[in-house]
Design a protein around this nucleic acid. Structure first.
Lengths: 378, 378
DNA sequence: TACCTGTATGAATCCGAAA
DNA sequence: GTTTCGGATTCATACAGGT
């Protein structure tokens, strides 16, 4: 029988050695609470620790609106050394309470994930995979100075090299069109009705994770009835998904605003019928192939001359994937539009390359890349 | 004039302070060769260091004793410590030879990338992005115990926080169907005719990187004529792509088999045509046109009334090129910001003049001046 | 209803040339 | 070196309100 009642709040860490504070949120410091739990008692730990973002000044969008940055006190650290000490302290506590075959997930960004990963290795955890959460809709880079920061990294590690952690390989493969689940996952960020809002219609937590992400983590690496501990519980995504999936959770959180939101949220969750527990299948969409890939992959050489079907217009390809036609330059679409005096143009079908004596649209090369990708991944 | 001759081999690290061993492969130890190069002389470093924590030749204890084969945890820490020492040693040497605005790329997998990233931060490099190379055709996980290891991680970091590294934002954007390039890149692994084979038809190097990956790295973060150093040159993918793109390379490699393959490979490369190597110029580097010139050249008359696109705000042009709106006055940018209550504003795109019955942004007049300047200089 | 348009917003280490 | 200030810079969604 599974117990997945609604979450309760516990103030005192006191508990009998044989009992875990199942399906509750412990209020206060993560390390103190973990130290009070019995050794080797937890199946999985999911941790979303502070990222130690080091933001300088305020950031505005091109329309001059202000970006609501993560400026909370809990994300401020004096130095890398302080962050490392914090990291190693909570990880050591986490490792003690993990069962011998237990495992841990930690999520982070480039600000902290390298320190997190090195600490895991140093403490004796055994790395199983790093997993990339590709964001379908990330915030763009507003100043045009870097690549769009479009992913976060998760590390999955077992308690030790000798651990035999849970991995539901078959279930994942079934849910993934009968191909092995890869280490790159695509999910949208948490928005819309899933995002918890307060009475002022403002987000309760600055970094709420999408349930789909936790769904895959728990589906992949826990069994029904397992105990999942989240030492940085926030608004309780881990607890919500655990309850849905018939897993037990233990949350630890300091901020009352987050705890209150989490309690209400989890109480409203109705566990899935266990027979119905299936992974949502994100349908693979045809990969977008930008024109630059054709050059990078050697299908079009820089310097190649392109024509429209009637050879009325021509343009030359440059190394960076831009076209030049007289004084006009830009993307294949932009230059196609400019030479015709149109607002827009599909460069893939407009521009042609010389294939022997005939002209062939660029689109045939794009199709070739798509076909090879399909063949390779099949 | 760009020099992109074929690669030569140099045995002796000796060189005059003012000369770099451009477009050559230095034979021997990376750290020794880098230490022999002049300080602040290299624009970019691309490093694909050894991943495996199994101790290699050269990874011995300071007393030159060999570390035993690894099995227990104590030894593991020992080997991590050696890998860290090796990593920090080559990185410190790399940092010294980087120009102040120089940058570094390092590629790795979960075995080493977390240690690499932490070392970069500790040595004062400033992280710009972590980038994920998603492999279109990764090796499957044969035992079904983990997620398919379908990506590798690259870190892009500048020499220091103050550095202003090269980033060809516009070129990347237009080659990517006019949207920002993201931090997740999709490429096939290096196979087929690109993969170097020896006389026995066996691969020359176990981890040869695809040229497409280097193509994007160099297109994104170097300028034509830049010097790119690769301290773990292998079979010379970095050099091959650098030569194609009109960049200079310096390779360092110990293994003769790799060097011979790289020399032959690079000699066969034909650089792209110089015109094709030119990349799109960012708007930032276009000649600055002060608003006053529009008045001087009679394109805007003093007393002209300007509006925002929605005609919510208006202002009048004065003879000195300032604007007045009620009690506010100043540059087109300043007044644009003031009337909207913003910190900043681009007056060129915000303010419009009446062109017949329609409104047109001031920017169209600036474009007209720029076009006439181009014609004069052509 | 369906469609269109405008607005809001998300873990962000987000400017650079000229003076 | 520092300071000033011109002016460049965004993508995918969700939702509200109007046609």
């Amino acid at each position: 029988m599974l117990r997945t009642g609604s979450a309760a709040r516990k103030r005192a860490p006191g508990l009998e050695e044989s009992h875990l504070p199942i399906d509750t949120i412990l209020v206060g410091d993560s390390i103190a609470h973990m130290n009070a739990l019995p050794e080797a008692s937890v199946d999985l730990i999911f941790a979303d620790p502070p990222y130690n973002l080091q933001l300088e000044e305020g950031l505005t969008r091109p329309d001059q609106s202000k970006v609501d940055a993560v400026d909370d006190e809990w994300d401020k650290f004096e130095s890398f050394a302080h962050y490392d000490a914090f990291t190693r302290a909570w990880m050591a506590a986490a490792r003690r309470i993990l069962k011998p075959n237990g495992a841990i997930w930690v999520i982070g960004s480039y600000h902290n994930i390298f320190r997190v990963g090195a600490a895991l290795q140093d403490l004796g955890f055994w790395m199983l995979n790093d997993v990339v959460w590709r964001k379908a809709n990330p915030m763009p880079n507003f100043r045009g100075t870097r690549f769009t920061n479009a992913h976060e990294t998760l590390i999955w590690a077992s308690r030790s090299q000798k651990s035999r952690p849970t991995f539901n390989y078959e279930a994942l493969k079934l849910s993934n069109d009968d191909t092995q689940m890869r280490s790159d996952w695509l999910f949208p960020i948490c928005t819309g009705s899933e995002r918890l809002k307060d009475a002022n219609d403002e987000k309760v937590h600055p970094t709420q994770k999408p349930e789909a992400l936790l769904y895959r983590v728990l589906m992949a690496t826990t069994k029904p009835g397992d105990v999942v501990l989240d030492p940085f519980f926030g608004t309780g995504t881990t607890g919500a998904v655990a309850k849905k999936l018939g897993r037990h959770f233990i949350g630890i959180e300091r901020e009352n605003a987050y705890i209150n939101a989490a309690l209400k949220r989890i109480a409203a969750i109705k566990p899935h019928d266990l027979n119905a527990i299936e992974t949502t299948v994100p349908k693979r969409s045809a990969p977008r192939i930008p024109f630059g890939s054709l050059i990078e992959q050697g299908l079009i050489a820089p310097g190649t001359k392109l024509f429209d079907a009637a050879r009325r217009y021509s343009a030359v390809v440059r190394v960076d994937g831009s076209l030049v036609s007289d004084d006009k330059s830009g993307s294949i679409h932009r230059v196609g539009a400019l030479v015709q005096g149109f607002e827009a143009c599909n460069g893939w079908t407009f521009w042609h390359y010389e294939d022997g004596s005939k002209l062939a649209p660029l689109d045939t090369l794009r199709e070739r890349i798509r076909a090879s990708l399909d063949k390779l991944s099949a």
